[in-house]
Design a protein around this nucleic acid. Structure first.
Lengths: 418, 418
DNA sequence: GGCGGTGCTGGGAACGTTCCCACCCTTGTC
DNA sequence: GACAAGGGTGGGAACGTTCCCAGCACCGCC
């Protein structure tokens, strides 16, 4: 009766109903310019009567603002990213923004595609957890004034934009130091890096050439499913530059032991994630400070969706001198670690101590309760949105790196080694 | 050099560069109509040279398609919804659609607002896990041809649209039957419902009137933090219709014991979620079949973000005759149940058996490993998108209700009662 | 009484794309 | 050779909004 079902009411409809021009109707509804109180009321009534709802597409065409943010993360099923995303959406909605979501699974090609698509949709800004610290051409292009970008959880120093992270190196070093304080020396670290970067800058076609590219320069010392079988043992197409203990994310601090990507001239291989790099750096620093010489003997770097943390752990546990403690760099890895530990029939913390990044809900419920490095997940997301919105509103600005505090939560999973 | 930094290249730019008209350029790029091969190539080259990217906003204005889907769920931090969302985004991206995300925390007002905003943004379709089975006016309005809606995880029979769910009642009945088979009779169920529905159809202003509206008609028998203190004991403004054992979601099957919303004439109180209603129904059916008379003695229905499942469980455990088994209706509730059980120093399954909905990753790692009702989370999301896309493309159609299978995964958390 | 400011209003243009239609030229056919 | 058919092309309109500017009435002031 009141509304014509077929077509949604538009400004001209409202204007006609109220007996004014489009311009006046628009002013009355969007509340700008000057409109007499009576007219405004008349227009509002007409809009109400017709059930008028502004077409945001058309509005965006003119204003250049979509009030939409893009979020590019690895995997929403990882509780860390779920929490971060929750923080993002809450902060965004509070500010009148909507959120477009994309998962990359730490794959650079997927990340590039997602960023492109979101930009085509004209998001006002982008929150990205970049899969690589070095391969950021697709982001650099945006930062040049096209679309504001804020980095989340990970940092890319060469990118002149805001980043919101925690002090990964410090937190990692602190956690490992606690294990050392408990008497541990053989401390393992299990972490993951993204999949191989695509060779060409934009090219996405030639990424399929053989599975041999595996992890030659990555975690070199026998991360294959069967140990000693020789697979994955530094025979990749990069010439086997990975020596016996070559590790994925090199920290560039000159220990002389890590020969993986991150130090050299961008060799093919897994792309380094800043978070991983820093956590490894903190791990090494703590070990070195404790006088441990070979800081990489128990370092295991898997490839996202290619190598199972459980398998990595299993391999660690079957070493002649297995680690007495394991540090997992996120809660999903911790799950894998625990499952391998359980499968062996080992008990935590009597037989082996376990520490993890991220205070996932379940860590409080498992027996023993897991000691963890808690990150302020929601705040991380909220802070990223805050940074993004001020950048959207104020335009260019010197890049800021915001660092939030972590908290070590002591529970029951650390004990002295046997 | 090649691209002018200031303004992004548009079709007229490309047309000029290629020496053709806008129409021809548009045809060549969007690949419709007829364009000679040479012209097409010339236009493509020009577009490439200028770095042309189509403005999807403008395109959407004309075509009426945004290639964007809206997703309205309770909480992305709930692993169930995270998995569902992952399934949704994967299926959507594969079909060339993006996904706008909104959380409601089971709050009807938030749901209405989210649906409105997403529609204003002209999403092509909406996947909604409705916070209420009955309060669906905001959805009914859309189904009338404005914007296709697919219900996810929950069902609203009065809404003529597609729904993708599992057989909640059957799965629940099956799970409880397994507990009964193990010898249990005093089986508790802990679940949550959404917050109060807002009284008026569209009104959102008067929802703040006092905290006394609590759960008078809901889970009536002493769900307050301290038991026996009398709070929450059926004294709400609805006249205390909740008798001693009044329970939230009534199943309408006439046991005569549940007096909560869902049976009567839409009284004020927590809004029933179909999932909860059905799981309660299955629970009751299994108990009844086993000859248990008072099927609601151990039924506890909390309110989302208002009552902690742990507190509910704690209260159950302090009953004179505590339950010997607990059934949690999702993994987050299970977390609360386990934490209460642990706090009491009870051992699973020796002292108490525990079963839960949702095969969260951690359920395989806790000791003992949790027996669960596994839902095909990603498939649920993917199926919803599939249904939505066919509805978008083929238009009106008789509503379909797709039911996916659950799997009961037997692990170690069920044992005979003491 | 003329003039400049001010409050309110309306018309035209713009955003960047696709759609519709008319036009031209070529080709084939009777 | 006239005509129809059809591929290829270009111009105008449309989508629904906001922005810019001009115009009008009114008022106060010199």
């Amino acid at each position: 009766m009141t509304t014509n079902r077929r077509r949604a009411a538009t400004i001209p409809d409202v204007a006609r109903e109220a007996g004014v021009s489009r311009s006046t109707a628009s002013r009355a509804l969007a509340d700008y310019g000057s409109v007499s109180p009576e007219t405004r009321e008349r227009v509002r009534a007409a809009a109400e009567k017709l059930g008028y709802r502004a077409n945001q597409l058309a509005r965006s065409m003119i204003t250049g603002r979509t009030h939409t943010l893009g979020v590019v993360i690895a995997d929403i099923q990882n509780p860390f990213f779920a929490g971060v995303t929750r923080g993002i959406t809450d902060a965004a909605h509070a500010a009148g923004y909507q959120v477009l979501l994309a998962n990359t699974d730490e794959d650079l090609g997927a990340e590039r595609a997602a960023v492109k698509t979101l930009c085509d949709k004209h998001v006002d800004g982008l929150v990205v957890a970049p899969a690589s610290t070095t391969e950021i051409g697709h982001l650099a292009a945006l930062v040049e004034g096209v679309c504001p970008v804020v980095l989340l959880d990970r940092h890319a120093p060469s990118l002149a934009t805001d980043a919101v992270t925690v002090d990964n190196q410090g937190a990692s070093e602190d956690a490992v130091r606690r294990l050392i304080a408990a008497g541990h020396r053989r401390i393992a670290l299990v972490t993951l890096v993204g999949s191989e970067p695509h060779r060409g800058a934009e090219d996405e076609a030639d990424a399929q050439n053989g599975a041999g590219a595996d992890d030659g320069g990555g975690a070199g010392n026998g991360t294959g499913p069967g140990d000693g079988s020789g697979t994955g043992n530094g025979t990749g197409p990069d010439g086997g530059s990975g020596t016996g203990n070559g590790t994925g994310p090199g920290d560039g601090s000159g220990t002389g032991n890590g020969t993986g990507p991150g130090t050299g001239g961008a060799p093919p291989g897994p792309s380094p994630i800043s978070t991983g790099v820093e956590r490894v750096a903190g791990y090494r620093a703590a070990l070195r400070a404790a006088g441990v010489e070979d800081t990489d003997a128990y370092l295991r770097v898997g490839t996202f969706h290619r190598q199972d943390p459980a398998a990595l752990t299993e391999e660690l546990l079957s070493l002649p001198e297995p680690p007495t403690a394991v540090f997992a760099t996120d809660s999903m890895i911790a799950l894998g670690v625990l499952s391998a530990v359980n499968a062996r029939g080992l008990r935590v913390p009597e037989d082996i101590s376990v520490v993890a990044f991220d205070d996932a809900e379940w860590t409080r419920v498992v027996r023993p309760r897991l000691s963890v490095v808690a990150q302020p997940v929601q705040e991380l997301g909220a802070e990223a949105v805050r940074a993004l919105l001020t950048r959207i509103e104020t335009g260019a600005r010197p890049p800021r790196h915001i660092t939030l505090d972590t908290t070590f939560i002591t529970r029951d999973s650390i004990a002295p080694p046997r």
